[in-house]
Design a protein around this nucleic acid. Structure first.
Length: 152
DNA sequence: GCCAACGTTGGC
DNA sequence: GCCAACGTTGGC
């Protein structure tokens, strides 16, 4: 089993939005970065636990837990000219972009802020706290996962 | 295949 | 709103 962290801007789609969806599940569409795509397409399996991270907001940090509810399938928004994430070069017969479905598990009792995460020597290798990192999906080790939950 | 220009991310 | 970091694009 692999653990993950996925970023989302709460103004666009936050943890409460996920909790309010039918079956508390939502396709993670719109990822247009190859590294992130590869992780969704090749490595994310049903049941994998996910930290839900709020970015670009007053208090950036981990706000909840989700899990992968459906493994990789083509991101249909890439084929919709009206969609914000339309990719004119993407071909439905040979899709470029993939997504997974993510299901709400629970909110954390408090937000574990980016600042706090950065202060932990145990998390020095976490991609999230490395300089200049812009990955929206990243792996989290079992040790990192347990440590972060211990901060809650 | 290089690299400058440009667009995006995301913390602050 | 600013801007550093980084990915992508496209001319050559």
């Amino acid at each position: 089993m692999q653990y993950w962290l996925m970023k989302s801007e709460p103004e666009a789609f936050g943890i409460d939005d996920l909790a309010g969806r039918p079956e508390q599940t939502e396709p993670w569409d719109g990822v247009r970065n190859y590294q992130a795509r590869n992780m969704m397409r090749d490595e994310m399996k049903v049941g994998d636990p996910v930290f839900f991270y709020h970015s670009n907001c007053d208090l950036p940090g981990i706000v909840g837990i989700a899990e992968v509810a459906r493994a990789s399938y083509p991101d249909f928004t890439a084929f919709d000219p009206d969609d914000k994430h339309f990719d004119p070069k993407s071909n439905p017969d040979k899709p470029t972009w993939f997504m997974v479905d993510v299901k709400f598990v629970r909110k954390l009792q408090r937000t574990i802020g980016l600042q706090e995460l950065k202060q932990q020597p145990e998390l020095a290798d976490l991609a999230l706290v490395r300089r200049g990192n812009r990955l929206s999906i990243m792996p989290v080790s079992r040790q990192q996962w347990d440590f972060i939950l211990g901060l809650e």
